[in-house]
């Protein structure tokens, strides 16, 4: 009887809320099963931020201060797609990350690594009609955290996307290929094994810019619609 406009995620697509190796899930993960909601207007609509004005340079994290940040300049690009491979047009993509030394421009980050006065670490862009987006940034560093003895986060960039509906909201993290820390990271490893690779960007030789920057490609796949919605 329920309308199913957007496809339900398979059980092995996302991490379970409770993932004890990532310690702070223990006191914060809901334990009761989520109640499955039929898709009503409340779920299939959502903020499009259509009137949000973005500056042209918001997707270039190397141009937000008076000088150039330290670190390895990189291009991060890709497409926002749905499960059918169709582009999600005009989606706002927000990112944030630490600097090349592994320190966030955030008062809560007390890691003993230098702040870079020329790197803030936040950016956003509106994807084009084909779902394409691009950022210029520097490669983030690894950093220690207090989850367990000698715990280090692999280099990562946080991504936030709305997609077309409340039901498609996603916050995730992009990792770099072949990072030796991935195997030791409880946040990356919270994702079921068969799906983890989807969080790794790929090195993209074609998109590198000679004499200037290496490039990584990261396509993001949001929930798609059911082909033939069931009528009640």
């Amino acid at each position: 009887m329920s309308k199913e406009i957007y496809r339900r995620a398979p059980a092995d697509a996302h991490p379970p809320n409770l993932s004890p190796e990532y310690k702070s899930t223990v006191s914060r993960a809901p334990r009761q099963p989520a109640i499955v909601l039929p898709h009503t207007l409340s779920e299939i609509t959502g903020p499009l931020l259509a009137t949000e004005r973005l500056d042209a340079l918001e997707n270039d994290l190397t141009q937000q201060r008076s000088g150039e940040p330290l670190g390895e300049r990189i291009v991060v690009h890709g497409r926002v797609l749905d499960q059918d491979g169709k582009p999600v047009p005009k989606a706002i993509v927000e990112i944030w990350q630490c600097n090349a030394a592994g320190r966030y421009h955030h008062p809560g980050d007390q890691h003993d690594a230098p702040l870079d006065p020329n790197f803030y670490g936040g950016g956003r862009v509106r994807a084009d009609e084909d779902g394409r987006y691009q950022f210029i940034t520097i490669k983030p560093g690894a950093y220690p955290w207090k989850n367990h003895h000698n715990a280090w986060r692999p280099a990562h960039i946080h991504f936030s996307l709305f997609g077309p509906a409340f039901a498609t909201r996603l916050i995730t993290q992009m990792y770099f290929p072949n990072d030796p820390l991935l195997g030791f990271d409880p946040i990356y490893n919270s994702v079921p094994e068969g799906a983890r690779h989807r969080l790794q960007s790929s090195f993209d030789m074609e998109a590198t810019r000679p004499e200037w920057a290496l490039a990584y490609k990261f396509d993001i796949v949001l929930r798609g619609r059911n082909a033939t919605p069931m009528e009640g």
């Binding site: 398979p10 697509a13 797609l81 491979g85 995730t172 946040i187 994702v191 969080l199 796949v221 949001l222």
Partner: peptide, 9 residues
Amino acid sequence: HGLTPSQTI
């Protein structure tokens, strides 16, 4: 296409 998995904010 496989869904991009969620990660913590």
